[in-house]
């Protein structure tokens, strides 16, 4: 998109457009919504077709599905404790929704819905409300002791309480911003180097040769983005587990 007006338009890729013709237009069905549906369908397909044979010696798809299941299951039990099994469906959904979304966003002509703060904030809000709700459900009013550091002087208690509450609320900002900033930064970088390539290629023979350098950088960046896509999904799920651990055990 930068080629036509020979300026770098790195943020245009994050604009939402309605898809699916007039019907999509009338209900504001954007490409982000479409990709979320595709992502959900992919996860369901992996689980359905992966587990349908339920062979003792798993095939490739079944091995993949079992690996996915076991990976998240172990993370839950390890981080939260035995109670972690209860939260397995939530963490599993969250992890794969983000992971597949990140990976789908790397395909050409695709769109990364996790690069929108609205999406990541909604996910983080769900995590925040769940972990707070769990803490209140399990511990009742005792939950408030989470905000009182042990062994603090009585006179400082009100101040420390407020600071702890602000610190607790700041999870609601740092959790979504981490994911959204990582995804957005990576895609902006790729767009910028791709624009360099197109601009150089338009500048004669020397430019065509020089255009290989930004192309080489983009090849490396794609590999790096694959790492970031998996890592950020993992970090999001892991931090969810940590917060749930705090909610279940208080400290």
């Amino acid at each position: 998109m930068a080629a036509e007006h020979s300026s770098i338009d790195a943020l245009g890729q994050f604009e939402l457009h309605t898809t699916l013709g007039a019907l999509g237009h009338s209900v504001n069905f954007t490409q982000a919504n479409l990709l979320m549906l595709v992502c959900s369908a992919l996860i369901l397909a992996l689980m359905y077709f992966g587990m349908r044979p339920s062979a003792i010696v798993p095939g490739r798809l079944q091995a993949g599905a079992e690996l996915a299941y076991k990976f998240v299951h172990d993370m839950c039990v390890e981080q939260i404790g035995e109670e972690g099994r209860k939260f397995f469906p939530f963490v599993f959904t969250l992890f794969f929704f983000i992971l597949i979304g990140n990976l789908l966003g790397l395909l050409p002509y695709s769109f990364t819905y996790t690069s929108h703060i609205a999406v990541t904030f909604a996910l983080a809000l769900a995590v925040f409300l769940l972990s707070t709700g769990v803490a209140i459900y399990i511990h009742g009013w005792h939950f408030l002791s989470y905000f009182v550091p042990e062994g603090s002087p009585k006179i400082l208690l009100p101040l420390l309480f407020v600071i702890e509450v602000v610190s607790y609320l700041s999870r609601l900002i740092s959790l979504p911003v981490r994911l959204f900033a990582n995804m957005m930064a990576g895609h902006v970088m790729m767009e910028v180097f791709a624009s360099f390539m197109v601009m150089m290629a338009g500048a004669g023979t020397v430019g065509v040769v020089a255009a290989f350098f930004p192309q080489a950088i983009n090849v490396i960046l794609i590999g790096f983005e694959l790492l970031v896509a998996a890592l950020q999904a993992y970090v999001f799920a892991l931090l969810t587990c940590l917060y749930l651990h705090d909610a279940v055990h208080l400290h």
Binding site: E78, Q79, V166, S167, L169, S170, R171, L172, I173, S174, V177, R178, A181, Y234, V235, L238, L239, C241, L242, H245
Partner: peptide, 27 residues
Amino acid sequence: PVDPTEGSALSLGLRVGMELVAAMLVG
């Protein structure tokens, strides 16, 4: 639980910066 960002110094630095800003924003 293990620290999720026991990785590179860069990720630790980014996380520290983010936590500072996030708490300030909430305040």
